[in-house]
Deep mutational scan, measured.
Amino acid sequence: VPQRAWTVEQLRSEQLPKKDIIKFLQEHGSDSFLAEHKLLGNIKNVAKTANKDHLVTAYNHLFETKRFK
């Protein structure tokens, strides 16, 4: 089981690129989880459509539901 890579403050910070969060989610989330949160596909394309709040919610949801690969 992966550990949380970032704190809530870090997740919301401008310093953390959306692409980093997407990469983490794609590496650790199950396909059904990723599909549900519309996070499947090319990281660049996902970054265009997903806002930061959406990614933070998905990140927290992944750990709450433990839907890891």
Rank of each mutant, 00 (worst) to 15 (best):
V1C: 15
V1F: 13
V1Y: 13
V1I: 12
V1D: 09
V1P: 10
P2Y: 03
P2S: 04
P2V: 07
P2M: 04
Q3S: 08
Q3T: 11
Q3A: 09
Q3K: 14
R4A: 07
R4V: 05
R4T: 05
A5L: 15
A5Y: 14
A5I: 15
W6H: 14
W6P: 15
W6G: 12
T7R: 02
T7P: 13
T7H: 05
T7Q: 05
V8P: 15
V8F: 04
V8R: 03
E9R: 01
E9Y: 02
Q10H: 04
Q10K: 03
Q10W: 04
Q10E: 12
Q10R: 02
Q10L: 05
L11P: 01
L11E: 01
R12W: 15
S13W: 02
S13H: 04
S13I: 02
S13T: 03
S13F: 02
S13L: 02
E14C: 08
E14W: 06
E14D: 13
Q15D: 10
Q15W: 09
L16G: 01
P17I: 06
P17A: 07
P17V: 08
P17W: 02
P17K: 11
K18P: 15
K18M: 14
K19N: 13
K19A: 15
K19T: 14
D20G: 04
D20K: 10
I21K: 00
I21D: 00
I22N: 00
I22S: 00
I22K: 01
I22D: 00
I22F: 03
K23I: 06
K23H: 08
K23F: 07
F24Q: 03
F24K: 02
F24E: 04
F24D: 01
F24Y: 08
L25G: 00
L25P: 00
L25M: 06
L25S: 00
E27H: 10
E27Y: 05
E27V: 08
E27A: 08
H28V: 12
H28P: 00
G29F: 01
G29S: 10
S30L: 06
S30N: 11
S30P: 03
S30R: 05
S30A: 10
D31Y: 14
D31V: 12
S32R: 10
S32M: 09
F33Y: 07
F33I: 02
F33M: 02
F33A: 00
F33G: 00
F33T: 00
F33Q: 00
L34P: 00
L34I: 06
L34W: 01
A35N: 09
A35P: 01
A35G: 08
E36Q: 10
E36N: 06
E36L: 10
H37I: 04
H37F: 14
H37V: 06
K38G: 14
L39C: 02
L39Q: 00
L39W: 01
L39E: 00
L40Y: 10
L40H: 10
L40P: 01
L40C: 14
L40N: 08
G41Q: 04
N42Q: 12
N42R: 13
N42P: 14
I43W: 11
I43T: 09
K44S: 14
K44L: 15
K44M: 15
K44R: 11
K44Y: 15
N45T: 14
N45E: 14
N45Y: 14
N45G: 12
V46F: 05
V46S: 05
A47F: 04
A47C: 11
K48P: 07
K48D: 14
T49W: 14
T49E: 11
T49A: 09
A50N: 07
A50Y: 05
A50T: 13
A50L: 12
N51H: 08
N51D: 13
K52A: 05
D53Q: 07
H54L: 11
H54D: 13
H54S: 11
L55Y: 02
L55E: 00
L55F: 05
L55P: 00
L55D: 01
V56F: 05
V56L: 04
V56I: 15
V56T: 06
T57M: 13
T57V: 13
T57I: 14
T57L: 11
T57A: 10
A58T: 06
A58P: 01
A58G: 02
A58R: 01
A58C: 09
Y59M: 03
Y59I: 03
N60F: 13
N60G: 10
N60V: 15
N60D: 12
H61P: 01
H61A: 13
H61T: 13
L62A: 01
L62H: 01
L62D: 00
L62T: 00
F63N: 01
F63Q: 02
E64F: 08
E64G: 05
E64P: 02
T65G: 11
T65S: 10
T65K: 12
K66F: 08
K66W: 07
R67P: 04
R67H: 09
R67M: 11
R67Y: 05
F68S: 03
F68T: 06
F68A: 03
K69G: 08
K69A: 10
K69N: 07
K69I: 07
